[in-house]
């Protein structure tokens, strides 16, 4: 367990940002998904000890609930979303200074910042002023600063923001390496679903301060309705909409179609039918939902529930 929230409520005056959230983030890489204002930042703020939850219990790693904020931040690394740097400093100076502010002794901070910058691919640019870095290099410098004090958990807030496709792929590789090779627990707060799908093992979807879906990505994306992707050859074979009893075509195009099945699909019947029309089934695979579909489905069902209760 990395983080455990139990009935956590966060209010700013009369506005409720997080409403009775109960969730356990496992070790590994976890995506915190949600639209703007869903409550992601409020949860991060309170986990970092910047905001006290109105009610509920919150634990990070094995630290007690009453642990001082400085002790929490010594075990947690945070990479902010916004473009930020320490003015007038080189990458090395910035990372080593932030390491010292996190509690690293001076000598360790110097050595450690070399290692963190090397890990993030900034070894050649570490003595250049950060103000002259490109967007991608600044993101890497922020990541190095988040890792310098060897935290067990790393909160990454939109790490691929403003990066070109190459930079984005590199950043995701780094995040993947952190979680799967270096043994860090990564909490990736983002609204880019592909990023979460690429590097995370689990996801939590937030909507208006509530958890609307959570679990391992594999489980979340597993088909709930019975759908199959079918590819036939040649592509010109015509298949009727209701090809078999209890089986209908949901979408079709250029030799590929998706079938929805009410009961169990009997592949032999399908193969025979296609063969009867002069074609061959080349591929028959169960449909796997994308994380985007999971996200939109969860958000829409939450909206529908709110509409019913209203």
């Amino acid at each position: 367990m990395t983080v455990e929230l139990q009935d956590v409520v966060i209010r700013y005056g009369s506005f409720t940002a997080v409403s009775s959230v109960t969730v356990t983030l496992p070790t590994g890489a976890v995506g915190l998904l949600g639209r703007n204002g869903a409550g992601k930042s409020s949860i991060l703020k309170s986990l970092l000890g910047l905001v006290r939850p109105t009610s509920g219990r919150m634990r990070i790693l094995d630290l007690p609930e009453s642990a001082p904020a400085a002790e929490i931040r010594a075990r947690v690394g945070y990479m902010p979303e916004r473009d930020c740097h320490l003015p007038g400093m080189s990458g090395f100076e910035m990372v080593s200074m932030l390491g010292q502010l996190s509690g690293l002794p001076e000598r360790d901070a110097y050595r450690r910042s070399h290692e963190a910058l090397y890990l993030c691919g900034l070894e050649e640019q570490r003595y250049r002023p950060v103000s002259g870095y490109s967007a991608g290099m600044r993101q890497k410098a922020k990541l190095a600063a988040a890792l310098v004090h060897d935290p067990q958990v790393v909160f990454l807030d939109e790490p691929t923001n403003g990066l070109d496709p190459d930079g984005r792929a590199e950043m995701l590789r780094l995040v993947h390496r952190l979680a799967h090779k270096l043994g860090k627990s990564v909490v990736l707060s983002t609204h880019i679903l592909q990023d979460v799908e690429a590097v995370c093992d689990a996801a939590v979807v937030l909507e208006q301060g509530k958890v609307v879906a959570q679990g391992r990505i594999e489980d979340l994306c597993r088909a709930t309705e019975r759908r199959y992707h079918v590819q036939v050859e040649p592509a010109t074979v015509e298949i009727p909409d209701h090809i078999l009893a209890g089986v209908r075509i949901a979408s079709q195009g250029a030799g590929r179609f998706v079938v929805e099945v009410e009961g169990d699909l009997e592949p032999r019947e399908l193969f025979a039918l296609v063969q009867g029309r002069g074609g061959t089934v080349r591929e028959l695979v169960p449909h796997r939902r994308s994380l985007e579909e999971v996200f939109l489905g969860a958000v829409r069902s939450a909206e529908a529930q709110r509409g019913v209760s209203a």
Partner: peptide, 8 residues
């Protein structure tokens, strides 16, 4: 933001 998410 960098300072205050550290141990100070």
């Amino acid at each position: 933001e960098l300072y205050w998410t550290r141990g100070i």
